[in-house]
Simulated scan of single mutants.
Amino acid sequence: MPVLERETFASRLLTWYDQHGRHDLPWQQDRTPYRVWVSEIMLQQTQVTTVIPYFERFMARFPDVASLAEASQDEVLHLWTGLGYYARGRNLHKAAQVVMAEHDGRFPVDSLEAMAQLPGIGRSTAGAIIAQSTGQRAVILDGNVKRVLTRLQAVEGWPGRPAVERELWQLAEHYTPHDRVVDFTQAMMDLGATLCRRGQPDCPRCPFHDVCLAHASGEQRRFPESKPKKTTPLRTTRMLLLRDAGGRVLLELRPSTGLWGGLWSLPQFDNDQDLGRWLDEHAPAAERGTPQTSFTHVFSHFRLEITPVPASVEHMDSVSEGWRWYDPQTPDSVGLAAPVKKLLQTLSPFTLSPPAGP
Rank of each mutant, 00 (worst) to 15 (best):
R90G: 04
N91Y: 15
N91T: 13
N91M: 11
L92C: 07
H93T: 03
K94F: 06
K94Q: 15
K94R: 15
K94C: 07
A95V: 10
V98K: 07
V99R: 08
V99E: 04
V99F: 02
V99L: 10
M100K: 11
A101K: 13
A101M: 08
E102T: 02
H103K: 06
H103L: 03
R106C: 11
R106K: 11
F107W: 12
F107V: 06
F107M: 13
P108L: 01
P108Q: 09
P108R: 09
P108W: 05
V109Y: 02
D110N: 13
S111T: 13
L112G: 08
L112Y: 02
E113Y: 06
A114K: 14
A114H: 09
Q117W: 07
L118V: 12
L118N: 04
P119L: 13
P119Q: 14
R123H: 15
R123M: 14
R123C: 12
S124T: 15
S124V: 11
T125E: 05
G127Q: 00
A128L: 01
A128T: 01
A128P: 13
I129K: 00
Q132E: 07
S133L: 02
T134C: 02
T134D: 02
G135W: 05
Q136K: 05
R137Q: 08
R137W: 04
A138S: 06
V139I: 15
I140N: 01
I140Y: 00
I140E: 02
L141T: 06
L141E: 05
L141Q: 07
D142H: 06
D142E: 15
D142R: 07
G143T: 08
N144Q: 11
N144T: 02
N144I: 02
N144R: 01
V145T: 10
K146L: 09
K146D: 08
